[in-house]
C-alpha cells in the first residue's frame, strides 16, 4: 500500500437528526391530525381580537339583553351567536377564544419556566453528585409524592388570585418532574464514552454538562415538556373551576366552565359544554402529540 486512498460513500443529502426525526414523526396520521388541530387552536387563540365578533371583556359591547341565548340565535346587536351566550350576555365563541388565550399562555409560560428551573436543578444534581445530589433528589421525591393539584391548591390559597400567582403555583408544582427526568437521563449520558472522550480533551466540567450532556437529554425533556404543558393547562382549569384560580376579569376556560355550571340543570348546557370541549380538544391534541413524540424519541420503542 503506497498511499491510503479510501472511497467513502458521500451521504446522498445531509440528513440532520432533526430531518430524520421529522420524517418519523409524520408517519403517524393521528399525531399529524393532533398537531394540525393544535395548530388551529393556537392560531385561533392568537388571532382572537381580530376574528371574534365581540370583545367579551369590553362592557360596552356586552348586552345583558343577549344573556343565555342558545347556540345559533341572533344577538341584539345583529350578529349570530353560533355557540350561544353566557349568563351576562357574552358571546361564547368570543369568550372561548379569549379564554383559550389565557389558558394557553398560562400553561406554556408555567411549562417553560418549570422546564428551565427543573432542567437546571436536575443537571446540577447530576453534575455535583454525592450528598448534594441525594438531598436535591429526595426533596424532588418528597414533592412528587403529593398530587400536583394539591400542591398548586395550597399555594394558590396562600398567594391569592392572579395570573402571576397561578403561574408561580404551577411552576412550583411541576418543576420536579423535569428535574427528575433530566437527572436520570444525564446520569446515563454521563457514563457514555463520548463524555470520557470529552474529559480527555480537557474540556471544563460545565462545558461538558451543558454542551455535551444537555443536548443528549433533550429527547426525554421535550416529551415531558409537552405532557406537562397539557397538564398545566388542565390544572389551571381545575383551579379556576374551583374558584381559586384566575379572577372573573381574566376568564380562562376553567372560569367559563365554572360560570356555566349553575345553568347546567336548567338545560342551558352550552355555557359549560362548549368551553369544556375547547379545553378537551386542546389538552387531548397536546397529549397525542406528546405521546407520539415519545414513541419517536425513545429508541426502545423503535420498530
Amino acid at each position: 500500500m503506497t498511499d491510503t486512498q479510501i472511497i467513502a460513500p458521500v451521504p446522498a443529502k445531509a440528513e440532520t437528526p432533526f430531518a430524520q426525526f421529522r420524517a418519523e414523526f409524520f408517519e403517524s396520521k393521528i399525531a399529524v391530525g393532533a398537531l394540525i388541530t393544535l395548530g388551529i387552536v393556537v392560531v385561533l387563540a392568537l388571532l382572537a381580537p381580530w376574528i371574534t365578533p365581540q370583545n367579551p371583556y369590553d362592557l360596552a359591547q356586552v348586552d345583558v339583553m343577549d344573556a343565555r341565548l342558545p347556540p345559533g340565535e341572533e344577538a341584539f346587536s345583529g350578529y349570530t351567536m353560533w355557540l350561544g351566550s353566557d349568563g351576562s350576555g357574552r358571546d361564547l365563541f368570543s369568550a372561548i377564544l379569549y379564554g383559550l388565550r389565557i389558558s394557553l399562555a398560562v400553561g406554556v409560560a408555567s411549562g417553560v419556566i418549570a422546564l428551565f428551573i427543573g432542567t437546571f436543578v436536575g443537571l446540577f444534581a447530576a453534575y455535583v453528585g454525592g450528598r448534594v445530589e441525594t438531598l436535591i433528589m429526595r426533596f424532588v421525591d418528597l414533592q412528587l409524592s403529593f398530587p400536583a393539584s394539591l400542591v398548586a391548591l395550597m399555594l394558590v390559597a396562600l398567594l391569592g388570585k392572579g395570573v402571576d400567582k397561578i403561574i408561580l403555583a404551577l411552576v412550583v408544582s411541576q418543576w420536579a418532574y423535569y428535574a427528575r427526568t433530566v437527572r436520570a437521563t444525564a446520569l446515563v449520558e454521563r457514563h457514555k464514552e463520548y463524555v470520557e472522550a470529552a474529559i480527555c480533551l480537557g474540556l471544563s466540567k460545565a462545558r461538558i454538562m451543558f454542551r455535551h450532556i444537555l443536548p443528549n437529554c433533550l429527547g426525554p425533556l421535550i416529551v415531558v415538556g409537552t405532557v406537562q404543558v397539557a397538564s398545566a393547562i388542565s390544572l389551571e382549569a381545575t383551579l379556576s373551576f374551583l374558584g381559586v384560580g384566575l379572577p372573573q376579569t381574566q376568564p380562562s376556560l376553567g372560569v367559563l366552565i365554572a360560570n356555566g355550571f349553575e345553568y347546567m340543570l336548567s338545560g342551558r348546557y352550552w355555557i359549560s359544554v362548549f368551553p369544556g370541549l375547547a379545553l378537551l380538544l386542546t389538552v387531548v391534541s397536546i397529549n397525542l402529540v406528546g405521546d407520539h413524540l415519545r414513541d419517536v424519541l425513545n429508541p426502545r420503542m423503535k420498530k
Binding site: P17, K192, E193, Y194, E196, A197, A198, I199, C200, L201, G202, L203, H212, P215, N216, L218
Partner: peptide, 19 residues
Amino acid sequence: RGNRIAMIFQDPMMTLNPV
C-alpha cells in the same frame, strides 16, 4: 488533557458526541 496528552478510544461509534 487533550493538549499535551491525548487519548483515542476503542469504539468510534461511542466516542463522538452524536448530537
